[in-house]
Simulated assay, not measured.
Amino acid sequence: MAVTVEDVRRIATPLPRAYEVVVRDRVKWRVGSIVWLAFSRDETELGFAFPREERAALVESEPDVFFLPGQVDLRYQWVEAWTDALDLDRLPELVLDAWAMVVPKSVSAPYFAGLGAGLGADR
């Protein structure tokens, strides 16, 4: 089953400074003016912020899931995935890592520290 906009929305929307927009019939998430997650119009592809120097390795390791953006977007720190090939269990990590790339560490560090404290309380 494909990852849906609603699956991503549950993870992305509560993140500090993140907000959802629709641009030219595409659902995207921004922090300020920076887009860090975006669905294709038909929602079969999900693009997300990802370190430029690591994306070739990601794509090579799982070419059935991940692919490089189009030529015009190669200048950005971005990679894409097929929504029907993404594992839902992996989605939170991809979303959180993409968000952490675009917010200041002063925002992401307390958020992740809170997650760790929450995990410790459950154990």
Rank of each mutant, 00 (worst) to 15 (best):
A49P: 00
R30Q: 13
A98H: 07
R52W: 11
M1A: 12
R24C: 04
A12Q: 05
P92N: 05
V102Y: 08
D84P: 03
R26C: 10
A98F: 06
V31D: 07
V79P: 02
D87K: 05
E6G: 01
P16L: 06
M101N: 11
V79L: 01
G120V: 13
L91I: 11
A117Q: 12
L74A: 05
K105N: 13
L68F: 04
Y19I: 02
V3G: 02
D84C: 05
E62R: 14
A81C: 04
A2Y: 03
R52I: 07
T13Y: 01
F67T: 04
P14S: 07
D73S: 08
R17M: 13
E43L: 06
G118R: 13
G116H: 12
R123D: 09
V27T: 14
I11M: 08
P63H: 08
L115R: 14
V103M: 12
V31F: 08
L86G: 05
R17G: 03
W78H: 10
R90N: 11
P69F: 05
S40A: 04
A18Q: 10
G114H: 06
S108A: 14
A56I: 06
W78D: 08
W29Q: 07
P104S: 15
A2G: 02
A49D: 02
G32I: 12
K105R: 15
D122C: 02
V79Q: 03
D89K: 13
V31P: 02
A100Q: 14
V22A: 11
L96E: 15
R26N: 12
G118W: 05
G47P: 00
P104I: 00
E45Q: 15
L46E: 00
L86M: 13
E60H: 05
E43C: 12
V107C: 05
L115F: 01
D7W: 03
P16F: 02
D97E: 13
F48Q: 04
V95W: 07
F67C: 03
E80Q: 14
P51R: 11
W78L: 14
P16D: 10
D84K: 06
A2T: 07
P110E: 09
V79R: 01
L91H: 07
R123C: 03
F66T: 08
G116T: 13
E93P: 00
Y111D: 05
F66D: 06
V27H: 09
K28L: 15
T44H: 10
S108Q: 08
V95E: 09
F50Q: 06
G32N: 09
V5M: 07
F50S: 02
R9M: 04
Y111I: 11
R10P: 01
G32C: 06
A57H: 07
E6M: 05
D64I: 01
I11L: 15
